[in-house]
């Protein structure tokens, strides 16, 4: 019976697994950006061997929509920056040289 008890301890009931998985999913950050924060290895922990040895907790699914939205927001941020003066001067200088020719 003792062996049976050990076995029971190791095997979670489907209902318990679902609850745990749901709890993990509810508390886990979403998307690539958030997932990146929990990546093992040298990316975010300065190369700690201890952390690098840990396998990922589970396969993350890339949140494409969130990633793409991030790219678009970043792109828009750059688009909204003023054009550097040196570029406008460059265009003007080339036009001026053309007129003088």
């Amino acid at each position: 019976m003792e062996a049976s008890g050990e076995s029971e301890e190791k095997v979670l009931l489907p209902s318990q697994e679902t609850a745990q998985a749901r709890a993990a999913r509810d508390t886990a950050p979403q998307g690539l950006a958030a997932r990146a924060c929990s990546l093992p290895g040298e990316l975010f922990d300065g190369g700690s061997a201890k952390l690098r040895a840990k396998p990922p907790a589970g396969r993350a699914v890339l949140d494409e929509a969130r990633f793409t939205a991030g790219i678009v927001r970043f792109y828009e941020t750059v688009l909204n920056e003023p054009v550097p003066e040196k570029m406008l001067r460059l265009v003007e200088e080339i036009a001026k040289r053309e007129r003088e020719r």
């Binding site: 990146a36 990546l39 093992p40 290895g41 699914v61």
Partner: peptide, 14 residues
């Protein structure tokens, strides 16, 4: 690119 990002999200091919 999508595949590569998936790998990145999963800690592979860093």
């Amino acid at each position: 690119a999508r595949q590569r990002l998936e790998e990145y999200a999963n800690g592979k091919g860093a």
